[in-house]
């Protein structure tokens, strides 16, 4: 399926989801939907580096927080519309993602993961000590009463996050089906063999960290308007990192579909648990599901489906994963 058609289908589904949420006529649906979509962006962004390239990033909260605090910083300087803040958050986090990549991508496995975790701690410490954005006191952002076009601001925030999720999924799918995605897959499989085949692994990894970081920052940019009061400890909370890893792992990391399925399953379950049991049970659900999937389906739901297909007659196995007409020269 060509990208414009895919994008159109996504927009139709997003439009249907928005209309369905309006039909409920309950603001909580928008609040909950916002969180689910936010995790869809975060898990999709994580998967670009973690799933496609095989580099496990524990720094999701750092990029997310950076996007959120970019909004606070710009808001204090001059209040801007959210779509513009989204771009600023993406640019700032993308630059930091590039920098992180440059400094850490010679590391592998646990060493890389620890380095990304350290980045989140460093960024949180910087924010705690930066008075302009509220420091350890936190920062208040007063949400406007009325949003452009829609009126209700909560609905507006949900719509923005919905569109951002569509954009993130489209970008992930585009990468997966391009020559860039080919290169990412070789990095995941065997970096030395990739280099020996002419793949510029460092350059590709830098592209992955930049795109991944930028999308995470964009997911964080509207957050101050959603939450109203931004606190460093919760904005840079470890649960963002855990969720952004758990969702693709449960759905499957080798395809854009995995994070989407994982997020719909896990984030929705968390939102239901929050209102029916307790918000504290969230991470317990994540932990239990993750342990279960690691044992039963280490390749996630998508892996389970592929395994099922492989047991079908030959011809469906190992189908070429890149469209034959994948455009553009090698990066």
């Amino acid at each position: 399926m060509r990208t414009p058609i895919f994008l159109l289908i996504c927009l139709v589904i997003a439009g249907a989801a928005f209309v369905a949420a309006v039909a409920f006529n309950n603001d909580y649906v928008f609040f909950a939907g916002y969180v689910v979509m936010q995790y869809m962006v975060l898990s999709t962004a994580w998967n670009i580096l973690g799933g496609y390239c095989g580099y496990v990033n524990f720094g999701t909260a750092g990029f997310f927080g950076l996007g959120a605090y970019s909004t606070v910083a710009f808001h204090r300087f001059y209040p801007l519309p959210i779509p513009i803040l989204l771009i600023f958050g993406g640019v700032v986090s993308g630059i930091v993602g590039f920098g992180m990549g440059y400094l850490t991508l010679r590391l592998r496995g646990a060493f890389f993961a620890i380095a990304t975790l350290a980045l989140a701690v460093v960024l949180e410490t910087l924010v705690v000590n930066w008075d302009y954005v509220g420091g350890s006191r936190g920062a208040y952002i007063v949400r406007p009463e009325v949003a452009p076009l829609i009126g209700n601001y909560v609905r507006y925030l949900f719509l923005i996050m919905l569109l951002l999720a569509v954009a993130a999924i489209t970008v992930a799918r585009l990468i997966e089906r391009s020559r860039l995605g080919y290169g990412f897959a070789t990095i995941r499989d065997d970096e030395q063999a990739a280099e020996a085949s002419g793949v510029p692994t460092l350059r590709l990894k830098l592209i992955a960290t930049t795109i991944s970081g930028a999308l995470m920052g964009m997911a964080g940019a509207p957050f101050p308007y959603y939450i109203g009061y931004l606190q460093p400890s919760s904005t840079f909370g470890f649960d963002y990192a855990v969720n952004a890893i758990a969702m693709p792992l449960i759905g499957g990391t080798t395809s854009w579909v995995g994070p989407v399925i994982g997020t719909l399953l896990l984030a929705s379950l968390q939102q239901i648990a929050t209102v029916t049991i307790s918000s504290a049970v969230n991470l317990l659900i994540v932990g239990c599901l993750l342990v279960g999937f690691v044992i039963v389906a280490p390749e996630g739901i998508i892996g389970l489906v592929h395994r099922y297909i492989r047991h079908k007659p030959a011809g469906l196995v190992g189908r070429s994963r890149i469209a034959a007409d994948a455009p553009g020269p090698a990066p």
Partner: peptide, 28 residues
């Protein structure tokens, strides 16, 4: 070069394994 122990790209089909050097070396 080839490696002493074969190191194919495990998640890619054989035809895709061939495409990698063609895309990233010959085309480049």
């Amino acid at each position: 070069r080839t490696f002493q122990l074969p190191r194919p790209f495990a998640s890619l089909s054989l035809i895709d394994n061939m495409r990698i050097p063609l895309i990233y070396t010959v085309a480049a």
